[in-house]
Design a protein around this nucleic acid. Sequence first.
DNA 1: AACGCCCCGCACTTGACATG
DNA 2: CATGTCAAGTGCGGGGCGTT
Length: 759
Amino acid sequence: MTAISHKRVASAIVEIDLTGSDHDYAPVPSFRPSKSPRLPAKAHGRRVRSNDECVNTLDHTQKSAAGNKEPENLHVPLSYRIPAGILGNCKQTSRKHGTTYWSHKLYRGPGDKEVIVDYCRTREESENIAQLFLDKEVLGFDMEWKAFPDLGGIKNNISLIQLACEHRVALFHIALHRGETTSQLLAPTLRKILESPRITKTGVAILSADGHRLRRYMRLRPRDLMELSHLYNLVKYAATEPEKVKKSLVALARQCKEHLQLPLLKDKVRRSNWTKPLNQSQIDYAASDAYAGFMLYHVLEAKRKMLRPVPPPPGHAELGLPIRLTDEDEAAAPGPAQPRASELDEELDPVSKRLFAALRQRRNEIAKEKNIVPIVVALDRTLLRIARLRPPDVDSIKLLNGIGGRREDRYCVEWLRVVRDHTFDAQPTPSSSTSTSEEPFSSASTLNVLKTNSLSTQHLPSPPTSSPPLALDATIRPLFSALLALRIRLSPSPTSSLAQQLVAPDITLQTLANLRPRTLHEIEAILAGCEMPELARRRGVDLVAFMTRHGPAQSMETTTTTTTTTANATATTAEGNEDGVDGALPRSSAPTPSPSPSSVQAATRPPQEQRGDTPAVAHHLARDCNRSPTAVSTSTSTSTSHAQPQPQRQDGRVPLAAVSPNKQPTTQTGRTPAPSDLLNRPSDPRGCAKGAAACEVVDLTGDDDTEHADAGGGNGAERLEARPPRRERGGRTGATRGTGALRGGAAVARRSRLQTRRF
DNA sequence: AACGCCCCGCACTTGACATG
DNA sequence: CATGTCAAGTGCGGGGCGTT
């Protein structure tokens, strides 16, 4: 983008002229005033690691770079760099006088072009300039705010937003924009960039500082944040001191000095009042910060790729995933090896909770009858798994961990009876609207999908990922199950519910299953804002083919009208019924033509289409993920057993017993799924079934769309948003504590041992 | 100065497993 | 089936260090 065209875009934009003669390959000291303070050895009185500590595996490259040269084999895929002569002078001056600092102004691109700096004072200017960054994959990102903000407000807490790509730095001076609300202050495209899962934003303390403020004061959901400190630690320590590969933050200035060969100036400018129009030094400082993030990312990435073995890049900071040293860490790193009972209990849906209570009650009765301790009959965790998965038969129950030996023979029938009684007791009546969220899922389907995904039941993801928030029509369940399984495969952390919700929220997958889009355009429109499209692309999964394989023959209708059809989807029994349903689309700001309210082919598939869904899922999943079906499927017997025709209830649901190969349906209900059951929009919970059920759905998705909420909300809520609550990470519950009392002896013994050790 | 995240250690609980 | 052992997980608080 040339300056001319740029001016045409927004004439009011101030384009900083940095082409003064001083900068044209001039002696280096002129880049900074000689009075510039030395880089302090200590920041805020806190210890700063000495350079001696910086020895790492890349020392050889750094040493070779000391002579104004990049390491010979280091390939940084950028065309802008510091001319060798200037770099040498700068380094020499910096060593002697400490007066020369790294700056974006040192860089030159093809044709001796300098880095353009755009200073945007209005929202309109910001919008125009932000569009220039929309096609970039990686951006340097930084924010400035008033050092000691008064009472709050967006402008005091997010005064300036900086973005940098290779040839351009943009300064979006939010504090000067008119208005007070997020929508008034933030250019739509800038918001899109910040929340895009496909544009990597790099910086230091990007999650805890910048990201936190965007969430707190603007109610944004910044995505694809790359914490440079993580990458720095990985590059520095992966080969020699892997135990030091941590998430500890490393100052941008230090990273700059080590990897960009010159220190970054961090003087009093950083604490200036960023709510006022910026002077030249502020502009230089702000632009350098963002540009440093961009450059550091590429240099660190290049150095990471030089390591052997090449460690995988750190995950998005907002996901909170551990930094992995090798690809093999992937399976072991995230989450506990075995989910704790407390975890499961915490996230059980209402039906499962009641079923769990019933199972425990029955367990206690058995224990009382036999005069034995309840824990001997069954562990709480085992009962929780039963409650959650609702296995359809004894064989399925036996597959659960914690049931073996004599237990399975004696008690499995009991558990099965409780599951059936409780499950069918919980069937909603036709007039019960709130019960829609309590309909049991096709447990066998879920179970098998998860198993065929090479995840043992020990590694089951959190309940929301397998229990749909709403009733799903039987024709939709297989596709929904397949999507859940696909999400697990694509998720960077299969056991993290947060990570999975970021890949694609439950509600979005449900919408996908309901609408069954058949073009990438439609699929991506529904998945707007989700990571699934990008992850699928990376893993070579063809979403269109996936939807085609797992969905029924009908495809999503894409009419050109945007009329929403009234959702009187009462008739769901006739073949070919295509009742339009309102509110079909998830929240999406994608400028694509909205997929029209689609047909919901409830109960329209012939029974044959419901056969063998699970093996089909396993097979296609294997294909989608470039794996052999045998590696995905547990056994052929499992598959064949599900290839039998499944009877279908009148309401289109698969009876719990029916999914078992040898069981026949035992009940029937005449309930017809309400359209709100099938298509639920978290952004408009009022459109959901009613009251509590609707609210539950929104909660279960973990997708609280609070963008319009008051800025400056509760601090506690912010913390919860930034980091999963401890309980989510595995808190103890009353139920599980109860079992601890049974083991008092062992606990006391351990306590005494610990005390002994201390003395 | 204020804020917030990460790391670590401590005390404690949980549950799989081994043994009798 | 009862009991003991032990690895792993959890909540909590404090220190370190980053940001502006």
